[in-house]
Design a protein around this nucleic acid. Structure first.
Lengths: 175, 175
DNA sequence: GCATTCATGTAAAAGGTTACATGATTGG
DNA sequence: CCAATCATGTAACCTTTTACATGAATGC
């Protein structure tokens, strides 16, 4: 139930609505975990039922802000201390890359070049997000920064890999 | 429907049984995509119905080998050429890392140290797999090697990141 | 003979995506 | 006034995991 804990982690910082949280899953949090609003709204309702969050007063356009409770904070801590993270990764680019030998080398080359471009663009986008962030020295900020640096490193690694892969295909075109 | 194409990609190299494929998802293929036998067996049956693979004669212990058909190869190529890979990643370690500021610094430090150890161990395991592989010069092998190098790079990046994160926590222990 | 590995499946539950649906507020 | 954005939700479907279930062959 990682989505629940992802939401608790966000709400531990400050109260937020489902809409706010959805937007965050589109950029900062989404770097690391993804979720759609169709999954977030029902989950927040269930979390309120379970007493992990409380619904505040309704704002304009029936905006509902959720605040984490003591029980919610306790559950978040329990998850961090007890639940070992799952390390299985899913990388659809690398999954496709494994099978590219069935294509013409020119198509495989185009594949890696396109992917390299996508990774470079994502890297540039995240870099500029990093640059525009006003980092205070709070603990929350420091850990946010640690994760962001991890994301930057990861994207750069993938970009370099895709570029190297393209080079490999270029160097050995025929069988 | 990535599982279906992951299986087609494997079968494009040589025929295999559900059991063989399951084992591969535990190490080589599993680096990039994961699946359990409970998902693989029904999927192979559906793929046979769809004419993408054919079931060979039964071996000992009702072992069933599947061979890719021309239609299966065509579908694999179509997927590689037309389906853009999904780039959303899920990294539960980084998801937890975002919230570690709610814990005592000592617990956060222990978290990163443990993760660094896990990544180093996974890296060593994959490195030795790489070393023991007898790479021929075939196209299939070359692309397999490209993906393996990508996996090594990724794991090393994560190990270095976790070590750096631990260092960050050590350097700024209090608020 | 017995433990391990090989080998295949089903069913229920959980997690996640896509399609559908609605309405309020803000800014130009 | 009108477009864009804010804001919330349901239902159907697909994907993935967990639990249950069974039996044959191999190696010691």
């Amino acid at each position: 139930m990682s989505l629940r804990h992802a939401l608790l982690g966000q709400l531990a910082g400050r109260p937020a609505s489902g809409y706010d949280l959805t937007k965050r899953f589109d950029y900062s949090t989404g770097l690391v975990w993804s979720a759609k609003h169709t999954q977030i709204y029902p989950e927040l309702l269930k979390m309120a039922e379970a007493g992990l969050v409380t619904q505040g007063a309704e704002g304009p356009r029936s905006r509902r802000e959720y605040t984490i409770t003591d029980a919610g904070m306790a559950e978040l801590r329990r998850w961090l201390l007890e639940k070992r993270p799952v390390h299985t990764t899913r990388n659809e680019t690398m999954l496709q890359a494994m099978s590219l030998w069935v294509l013409d080398p020119a198509d495989a080359l185009a594949y890696f070049e396109r992917e390299a471009g996508i990774y470079r663009a994502a890297l540039a986008r995240l870099q500029s997000y990093d640059d525009t962030q006003a980092w205070d020295g709070s603990a929350r900020d420091r850990f946010g920064r640690i994760v962001l640096k991890g994301g930057l490193r990861e994207l750069e690694g993938l970009a370099v890999w895709a570029e190297w892969a393209a080079e490999q295909v270029r160097e050995t075109p025929g069988e």
